[in-house]
Design a protein around this nucleic acid. Structure first.
Lengths: 245, 245
DNA sequence: GAAATAGTGTCTATTAGACAATATCGT
DNA sequence: ACGATATTGTCTAATAGACACTATTTC
């Protein structure tokens, strides 16, 4: 904490930019590999083109609050419990040629239905983590790529870590979501077992929900308070903190 | 990228703080579980106490450059190839009660010898990731904890990811380093095999380096350009990108 | 050859993926 | 009973840890 003279140094503009992700319903436009989408907006000012929504940090504001402001004021949505994930601080002094601006990039995922009235367009994303069509201004393509990469990484092992399914769900619904995020088909049995330890069965009195179409009704699950799943070796290390040969 | 009026919003001070880590030689002070240490400095100004070194971001400066300035100007070291790792952006508006200051926390590790002439004290760190004795001002204890946590995480699987051994080394030297960082003993065979895939044998014509004391001389290794080690499933996924039942 | 340190063969428990059988519903 | 979907038993390959043996040096 350097504290020489607080007014001596010039200060950068500090912004937050948001990769607002969603999953498109099946059979929407492109193939099943392009169901992951991001909300982009058109800029009409000086540099014209597509951007991720963002804004400046207000006085004495937390980053998370600024992201919430973006969702409310720029995307025009009234979503209470947003849970943005910090991605990276983009600090290249030349990233915005108009002024020295650093940006804390975030990623947030919301259900498709919640984005119905959103201000902006939902653009599908390819397997390479870039827009299927077009590109973004500034370094926003890099932000998007990072967002997709991190999102996919987390959806590999955990059930819906970004909360796109907020209530309860069947394993089939969960798997469909994960397939859409990852852009690839997943094996049913492997997927079920991988997720099982992070889910709790929530079916009551044999009550179950299933889509019409027939077939055995699926159990309904809910995400469980994950205690940070431990591998064999990690478990051992906690039991025998430091024994050695 | 919001760009309404660049001068309309008040801007925070932007700082970088650095957890400068090292590993103390064996038999220095405390037990083998407290060989990991961090450089702290004493502040005499307004809030008096121990802090991690830090400074403000200069105009149009990269974060990494600011960290390099901290090493040069605050820690008074002339180390050319520093490779700091970003930890987190600390953004609590009240983290510094004097002024609105956000701080990009970084961690950097340097060999003990390089810190001989450093400005500041090397304080040992406990298994809990906190100073064995005392505490730091502001949120610097949290920065330190995060630095230790992330450092240990990386030293679990990769050989010296923070470059504390810069040239070549034996597996015994590498293991001693990892034991010091992790604060726990490691099995020789398991450790060797875990590291093997990330190392390349660099012994020439039977030339080898070993400390005196007898015993079979050890091979000398060097870190290899890691191609990001792939597990079984990851390998499969790259070969058959998206086949499914 | 004894002591000391280095490196490896191999056994075993755990895990992850794959196939296939069984279970439960609507009609 | 049949079609459809869900769930689970089980085989197998791969991995990680542990034990113990072999190897190479100095004295």
């Amino acid at each position: 904490m350097p504290l020489d003279d607080l007014t001596r140094y010039p200060r950068p503009n500090v912004a937050v930019d948001l990769a607002l992700m969603t999953v498109l319903p099946p059979f929407t436009g492109r193939g099943p590999e392009e169901r992951l989408a991001v909300l982009v907006q058109h800029r009409y000012d000086d540099p014209t083109g597509l951007v991720l929504p963002g804004r400046f940090l207000r006085e004495r504001q937390h980053l998370v609050e600024a992201v919430e402001d973006v969702v409310r004021e720029k995307v025009k949505l009234d979503i209470p419990a947003a849970a943005p994930h910090f991605l990276k601080l983009f600090d290249d002094p030349d990233r915005d040629r108009r002024a020295w601006t650093i940006s804390a990039a975030h990623v947030l995922a919301l259900p498709y239905d919640a984005l119905r009235n959103a201000d902006g367009d939902l653009r599908p994303i390819g397997l390479d983590g870039r827009l299927v069509k077009g590109s973004l201004l500034f370094d926003h393509d890099a932000i998007l790529r990072l967002a997709v990469e991190q999102m996919r990484e987390r959806y590999e092992r955990r059930p819906d870590p970004y909360g796109l399914l907020d209530g309860s769900f069947t394993l089939a619904e969960l798997r469909d979501l994960h397939e859409a995020v990852l852009g690839e088909r997943l094996r049913k049995d492997t997927f079920n077992r991988r997720m099982a330890e992070h889910l709790s069965d929530v079916t009551r009195h044999g009550q179950s929900l299933t889509r019409s179409g027939g077939g055995r009704p699926a159990k309904v699950y809910r995400k469980r308070r994950s205690q940070g799943h431990l591998s064999q070796s990690e478990r051992r290390r906690l039991q025998l903190p430091r024994s050695a040969p």
